[in-house]
Write a protein that binds this DNA or RNA. Structure first.
Lengths: 206, 206
DNA sequence: CTCATAACTTGACAATGTCAAGATAAGATC
DNA sequence: GATCTTATCTTGACATTGTCAAGTTATGAG
């Protein structure tokens, strides 16, 4: 009958469950709360089981970051899919998706942008992270003012929204007034629209 | 004769030396490389000595972050002091100071913006970190378009430069072309100037 | 049925943060 | 000068962590 003591050997889901546990640890205990042994315990396996699926702690971290980037992409695409065809509307959409992600998965947002080293040889990670940049790039492309480099627009847009999201998370309490009055992203985006339109002069007309 | 085995008791510099060691550890081993015991060893004291000056690891982290913010302020002020009196020139200066800091102290830059919790009751930390925001605020003030909230300009500026610096550090390798071609900050700042000028219409007229 | 291999477990080790208790030096008090 | 007090460390211990080596078990192939 064997109820459940050893009822899930080789079910192939441990790797996923370890990443699940890792995400939850990051959420519950902050950026330093990640622990291989704790993840193993949460998944109901022995302390060294993660060592089979991940070479080391960085391996688990990289897998978590890969998931983080995938959810990041999903958040941007979900917004963009609902947007109309106008280039700036699509750009605005992915920016809002950016914020959706930061608000919905703060632990993953901070994790992937923590500056910590991940395994750059991991395929999952590389694919997911460069996909995020690809979304930005293709959404920016129609808005690049003629005669200027595409990187300039990309970095302008990305700096603005990334800075906004990152500061909102790490520094929101600096100014007590900002706690309530943190300006809306759309206010910043309208500045961005002005800046791009000013240089473009007359291209994205309506 | 006692050469030097116990030649530096109570010299009152241990706390500083521990912070020095912590900064160096962050630089050498990355954001996860900080260790109380290692700092103690570097300072030539026993493994529990830091416990006297800092309640725990977060105490040391907070002290390191406080130093990070102070150097941050210095970098911005050093540039601003050399700038002319024109408001946008001063704003541009602190933005360049921002980048100076990120480039000169990448480990501290990432550390203070890592999202990790610091001791918000620590006076040194609170003073230093809100001073950084104060520099931004007072430099932005003359540039706030009439009829708009000061926070909007502050966050616009800060998002842009912070996003630029933070992305440059954590994501520079996404686009191989960006390795060489990362656009200059001044290009982004000219967009910012346009955006502010557009809303201001006619205020900072030379 | 055997067996080869993937997916774990068990056990060990060094390093870490943290705490408790002791030691020691410097200055104050008598 | 002797004693006391207090700040500043040291020593020792403990639980937790990442990592490795070696053993174990299940699973599917033959």
């Amino acid at each position: 009958m064997m109820n459940a003591p050893k009822s899930r050997p080789r079910d192939g889901t441990l790797r996923t469950k370890l990443v699940d546990a890792g995400v939850q640890l990051l959420r519950d205990r902050g950026p330093d709360g990640l622990s291989l042994r704790e993840c193993a315990a949460m998944a109901g396996v022995s302390h060294a089981a993660p060592g089979y699926h991940f070479k080391n702690l960085m391996g688990l971290s990289t897998a978590i970051a890969a998931r983080g980037y995938r959810l990041f992409c999903n958040a941007m695409l979900a917004r963009r899919d609902k947007a109309g065809p106008a280039p700036f509307e699509r750009l605005s959409a992915i920016c809002h998706g950016y914020l959706d992600y930061a608000a919905g998965h703060p632990e993953l947002f901070l994790f992937i942008f923590s500056g910590q080293k991940f395994n750059e040889n991991d395929q999952d990670f590389c694919v997911a992270s460069s996909e995020a940049y690809g979304i930005l790039r293709e959404t920016c492309a129609p808005l690049v003012p003629p005669g200027s480099e595409i990187e300039e627009t990309e970095i302008l847009v990305w700096s603005l929204v990334h800075g906004y999201a990152h500061l909102a998370m790490t520094r929101k309490k600096d100014n007590p007034k900002l706690g309530r009055g943190w300006p809306d992203l759309d206010a910043l985006l309208s500045h961005l629209r002005n800046a791009l339109a000013a240089q473009s002069a007359d291209k994205t007309r309506e």
